[in-house]
Design a binder for these strands. Structure first.
Length: 952
RNA sequence: GCUCGAGUGGUGGAAUGGUAGACACGCUGGACUUAAAAUCCAGUGAGCUGUAAGGUUCGUAUGGGUUCAAGUCCCAUCUCGAGUACCA
């Protein structure tokens, strides 16, 4: 009987489903292990061969851990809210839920075909009301919390209210909006409820505020910073502009330091940690206030104001404060219009208007050119009282620090360029440094001069001293600043989680959690409304009746008990920020998860997914986890102990070359003689030797039907190849289905692993798949003997040589899996099977452990063998075999170490590994004897299966 | 520009500081076959040498260094890739 992989694979996939082989229980005598994949967005195109790469790796690890005696949780689900389904709905009117459901079916079929050991009983879908009920629930918890900097954690908002009632807000240390007025307890009690609510909103962990957002007019929605790539939207590449809007935000900045500190305790790839560190962007420095001078400001508003006006700046180099020769404000800075003198007014206004018109993209493309304008106003230097001019320049960003900088041209290249361009003073405050051509930015070699009390101090000492002086004299204070912004949480889309929020007197109110979920309403039209409201503005049934506690028709809004519901929906990352916890107890309708479940599974032990989520999902989910930890929901404040980024599988596109202006195609080898245009051809028309199937290509498009093809001299027509991202539009997508049908799921799994190191990006190329496929056939043949190929295994005792092969394999495969070097284990299997084939070994004592070793990689063929060996239980719970060192040492070599000249040689050791035997072998070796000069070796270091060192 | 990662045969890629190129693809030759496919066997880094078995030199981007021993560790340079982008 030959290897009918299709039958075998279908049989075992059915078996696993029917017996719920991989269903994990929330209690066990075994230790737990949680292996998680980043759940997919079910797109209309289905899975391509790149998607399963990480899933295969995690599946190998999960299956391996089961053999190692762990109770393994290995769930899967769908991140099923998202833009493509919505855009499809806009174009076709098809409800996104229907599209999504259909796509999920396809995904499930494709995933099942590969033979993953997922526990599907725990499946979650972010667009399922039973799931997003809990996304809404967490939103409410965030709304009802504030961040207490003293205890360094989130606390219930009631604790803040009681502080306000007893002592006002003067001494409250909270992460909150900067623009909070100070009030006493008495004042607080006098405030109207509306005012109190407005104040509290500035403290809550999710809050509504007028924010400058990234608005994408084409998509009709706002985007988070991580959804913008090179100044255009990540999806679709549409332009993005800045715009002020009333938006929900998440106060992630409260957690900036903890998000940074937490990186130290998790085993995540360094590049990913680096990019999170950079994204959070901690920098230490000082806030300094520069008083604005009134002289020359006749008739200005300034004179009439009592309060002293000042410009506050953040600087990481307060030590260079004596080098300040001008100030620069961002064009958007609120003081710009207030301080500009009448003479400069026209020029400044023109400049501000011009910069606001420039898109992000233009501003970025044009980093080099210097532009700015003088406001006519001055500040006083806090230490020297010198008059310092105030400029406006677009190299200063409104969103970072205070939107204003103290310019030190000698110590900052941008300030330097600005000063040179506008011919401003460049005082030198560095000892023995030439600043004729560029600024000096080398902190470590800085010695300050021309700076009063800072003279002759190196950088670090100068920093300490100046911050002390600034604080002493009341000019400012030392400060840690973060680049991280609060995360905008509103999207003007239909296909997302609705907020559990209604508005009363213009203030947001949370719906009582017991009435959740608030289900997404039906709409006729998925586009924004004519008056510019988000798509939910089209819903007729979208108002909240507080008496009936139910969603009702908008027409009832005039009733006293009915209020409008929030029209925005939550962003894509809302649903993915806690799904890993929900899997622990995904059917719980009483709670997000039970205490028992979360205390049992605790956190993810291994998380596999792409690095593209570094500053999105992987940062937001850490933030939510920390919040959930603070309010006592989860036992750990980091949810994934170890994370691995699988590399992307890139497509290999095929090109045909058409003569310009003619319907004539030229084979790759003959291009030199023609002027051609390259056109993508579908990769399925091309074989492994780059030959194009002309018939298939002609039938692809009507215009190719009658095309002329100029072939190579050998009669073939060759295409050009190029490595590009896999995409429908490049016709280079390869689906796993084709591979499964042609070679089987086990071949696909082995091949994807064999392709190269897991974490490395690599182009898809099926050329080598015959290698792993013929390996499986050889394995099959090992125990299907004779002309009829009947199953036959021998019960004879295995020889030492056979055991050697087996134990070598056990050791290597175990090491490889622990190190995530899945590619090299595939080689190890091939060597083992080749050796056993040569030995004609079909012995049960060898095949049984071999089946267990191979099962994580090729589970179907392993189950089949296991069953044929007479086992009635699935192989998945069989114990991983232990290797025995005594079978390994034979292959070891000896390297004597000597210090007199070059010498290196090897020696095979005997199987019998007593010290005497080794000494005897060493001394018997002619060269060794020479080099050791008759001495008996003192130390013999034996590492089974490795090198043996003998120190003379 | 900054940060991180990587440069090994015709190709994908192996090598706890210890026989570089495992394993696979491809290629060449052979067996089986009327033939092809499939399968099996042998060879395959480069050069020199030998009738042959073999011998020998050079080889892991480049130049230095540490070491008895370097693809691996250190320094510098070049190239490629990823992330990031005026962050004061």
């Amino acid at each position: 009987m030959s290897y009918h992989f299709n039958d075998i694979e279908a049989k075992w996939q059915d078996y696993w489903a029917k017996h719920q082989t991989f269903k994990a229980l929330n209690h066990s005598d075994k230790p737990k292990f949680y292996v998680l994949d980043m759940f997919p967005y079910p797109s209309g195109a289905g899975l391509h061969v790149g998607h399963p790469l990480g899933y295969i790796a995690s599946d190998i690890y999960a299956r391996y851990k089961r053999h190692k005696g762990f109770n393994v949780l290995h769930p899967q689900g769908y991140d099923s809210f998202g833009l493509p389904a919505e855009q499809y709905a806009i174009q076709t009117g098809q409800h996104p839920a229907i599209t999504t459901e259909a796509n999920i079916k396809t995904y499930r079929k494709q995933l099942d075909q590969i033979g993953f050991s997922f526990d599907w009983s725990r499946e979650v879908r972010t667009s399922d009301p039973k799931y997003y009920k809990w996304t809404q629930w967490i939103f409410i918890q965030l709304f009802n919390s504030w961040y207490h900097k003293t205890s360094d954690k989130a606390e219930a908002i009631e604790t803040l209210i009681s502080v306000f009632e007893s002592e006002g807000n003067a001494h409250v240390k909270a992460a909150c909006d900067d623009s909070i007025e100070v009030f006493s307890a008495a004042e607080w009690r006098e405030f109207s409820t509306v005012k109190q609510q407005k104040i509290l909103l500035k403290y809550r962990l999710t809050f509504l505020s007028e924010t400058e957002v990234n608005w994408c007019p084409t998509l009709g929605t706002v985007l988070a910073n991580d959804e913008i790539v090179n100044g255009v939207s990540e999806r679709g590449g549409h332009p993005v502009v800045r715009k002020k809007m009333m938006q929900w935000s998440m106060r992630i900045t409260a957690y900036a330091q903890r998000l940074l500190d937490g990186l130290a305790k998790i085993d995540w790839p360094q590049p990913l940690k680096d990019s999170q560190t950079y994204w959070i962007g901690r920098s230490e420095g000082a806030m300094v206030k520069f008083s604005i001078l009134n002289n020359g400001l006749e008739n200005s508003k300034l004179k009439t104001q009592n309060s002293k006006l000042f410009i506050e700046v953040f600087t990481t180099r307060p030590d260079t404060i004596f080098g300040v020769s001008f100030m620069t404000l961002a064009p958007e800075h609120e003081l710009v219009s207030k301080i500009t003198t009448p003479e400069q007014k026209a020029e400044v206004e023109a400049y501000v208007k011009a910069t606001s018109k420039r898109s992000e993209l233009e501003r970025m493309a044009d980093v080099k050119s210097v532009s700015g304008v003088f406001t006519g106003a001055y500040v006083a230097h806090p230490f020297t009282d010198k008059k310092i001019p105030i400029w406006v320049g677009d190299y200063v960003l409104a969103g970072y620090g205070t939107g204003a900088v103290m310019a030190v041209p000698c110590g900052d290249q941008r300030d330097y360029d600005f000063a040179k361009h506008f011919n401003l003073e460049i005082p030198n405050i560095f000892k023995d440094v030439n600043i004729d051509s560029e600024a000096f930015t080398d902190k470590d070699n800085t010695v300050i001069s021309n700076s009063d009390f800072l003279n002759d101090l190196p950088y670090k000492k100068a920093m300490k001293r100046i911050i002390f002086e600034i604080e002493q004299r009341g000019f400012g204070n030392g400060k840690v600043n973060y680049r991280l912004r609060d995360a905008v949480f509103s999207r003007q889309r239909y296909w997302g989680e609705p907020f559990p929020v209604y508005y009363q007197n213009g203030l947001p109110q949370m719906i009582d959690p017991k009435y959740l979920p608030i289900v997404l309403p039906e709409v006729e039209n998925y586009l924004p409304t004519n008056d510019g409201k988000p798509p939910l503005g089209n819903a007729t049934n979208w108002a909240w009746d507080i008496e009936k506690s139910t969603v009702v028709n908008n027409k009832l809004i005039n009733n006293k008990t009915v209020f409008p519901l929030e029209l925005n929906t939550m962003p894509g990352w809302a649903g993915s920020s806690q799904y890993f916890n929900r899997y622990m107890d995904s059917h719980n309708s009483e709670a997000l998860f039970s205490k028992d479940a979360v205390n049992y599974w605790r956190e993810v032990d291994l998380y596999i997914g792409g690095s593209e989520h570094a500053t999105g999902h992987l940062l937001y989910s850490r933030f939510w986890q920390k919040f959930m930890f603070d309010i006592g929901l989860v036992p750990t404040d980091e949810y994934a102990k170890k994370l691995i980024n699988q590399g992307m599988i890139i497509g290999t596109s095929a090109f045909v070359y058409r003569v310009e202006g003619e319907n004539k195609f030229i084979s790759k080898g003959l291009l030199a003689h023609f002027k051609v245009q390259a056109i993508h051809a579908d990769v399925s028309f091309v074989n492994a030797s780059d030959e194009l199937d002309l018939e298939a290509f002609k039938n692809w498009r009507p215009e190719y039907k009658d095309a002329i093809f100029i072939k190579e001299t050998d009669g073939t027509f060759k295409v050009g190849r190029e490595v590009e991202k896999m995409s429908k539009s490049k016709y280079n997508v390869v689906n796993p289905d084709q591979i499964c049908e042609e070679y089987g799921a086990d071949s696909l799994r082995l091949f994807e692993m064999f392709l190269g190191p897991l974490e490395q990006a690599k182009p898809w190329n099926t050329a080598g798949i015959t290698g792993v496929h013929s390996f499986l056939k050889k394995l099959w043949k090992l125990y299907h003997l004779g002309a009829d190929g009947a199953f036959y295994v021998s019960d004879n005792q295995a020889t030492n040589e056979e055991y050697k092969t087996l134990h070598k394999t056990i050791k290597k495969v175990e090491e490889d899996i622990e190190n995530f070097s899945f590619n090299t284990s595939v080689s190890t299997f091939m060597i083992a099977v080749n050796e056993l084939t040569v030995l004609k070994c079909n012995k049960r004592t060898i095949l049984e452990p071999l089946a267990i070793l191979i099962e994580p990689y090729a589970p179907h063929i392993a189950e089949e063998l296991w069953q044929k060996l007479g086992h009635y239980e699935s192989i998945s719970t069989a114990n991983f075999p232990l290797f025995d060192p005594k079978y390994l040492v034979e292959s070891s070599k000896v390297y004597p170490i000597s210090f007199n000249g070059k010498m290196k040689f090897t020696l095979e050791l005997p199987l019998d590994l007593t010290k005497e035997a080794i000494e005897k072998a060493v001394m018997a070796h002619e060269k060794t004897q020479q080099n050791l000069q008759g001495r008996i070796p003192k130390n013999i270091i034996i590492v089974p299966g490795k090198i043996v060192n003998i120190v003379g």
